[in-house]
Amino acid sequence: LTVHVGNVTYHFDNPEQAEEWAKRMAKKYQGQIHVKDGQFRIE
């Protein structure tokens, strides 16, 4: 699973971990989480 934050990409084996990280990053950067094809993108 991949989480994109700006132009930085993080890889996770565990979906719960990826989702948790995406939520934390979205809160930190006050962005929206977009989920597409098993990838999380924070914008």
Score class of each variant (00 low, 15 high):
L1V: 14
L1N: 14
L1M: 13
L1G: 13
L1S: 14
T2P: 01
T2G: 03
V3D: 00
H4Q: 12
H4I: 14
H4L: 14
H4A: 09
V5L: 09
V5T: 01
V5E: 01
V5K: 01
G6P: 01
N7S: 12
N7L: 09
N7P: 08
N7I: 08
V8T: 09
V8G: 02
V8F: 13
V8Y: 13
T9K: 07
T9N: 03
T9I: 14
T9R: 08
T9Y: 08
H11G: 02
H11F: 13
H11C: 15
F12I: 00
F12P: 00
F12C: 08
F12W: 01
D13T: 12
D13L: 09
N14T: 13
N14G: 04
N14L: 10
N14R: 08
N14S: 11
P15C: 14
P15R: 14
P15A: 12
P15M: 12
E16L: 11
E16H: 14
E16A: 11
E16Q: 12
E16C: 15
Q17F: 07
Q17W: 09
Q17H: 09
A18F: 08
A18M: 05
E19A: 12
E19R: 12
E19N: 07
E19K: 11
E19L: 15
E20V: 07
E20G: 05
E20K: 13
W21K: 00
W21R: 00
W21C: 15
A22W: 06
K23A: 06
K23S: 05
K23V: 09
K23H: 10
R24V: 10
R24T: 08
M25D: 00
M25A: 03
M25E: 01
M25L: 09
M25V: 06
A26N: 03
K27R: 13
K27S: 09
K27E: 11
K27D: 08
K27V: 10
K28P: 01
K28Y: 12
K28H: 09
Y29L: 12
Y29V: 06
Y29N: 02
Q30L: 07
Q30M: 10
Q30Y: 07
G31M: 14
G31W: 14
G31N: 04
G31K: 06
Q32M: 08
Q32C: 14
Q32G: 04
Q32L: 08
Q32I: 14
I33D: 03
I33K: 02
I33Y: 05
H34N: 09
K36Q: 13
D37T: 01
D37R: 01
D37E: 06
Q39C: 15
Q39W: 06
Q39R: 04
Q39V: 10
Q39A: 12
Q39S: 10
F40T: 05
F40V: 09
F40Q: 04
F40L: 14
F40S: 04
F40W: 14
F40G: 04
R41V: 15
R41K: 07
R41M: 14
R41W: 15
I42E: 04
E43V: 14
E43I: 14
E43N: 04
E43P: 05
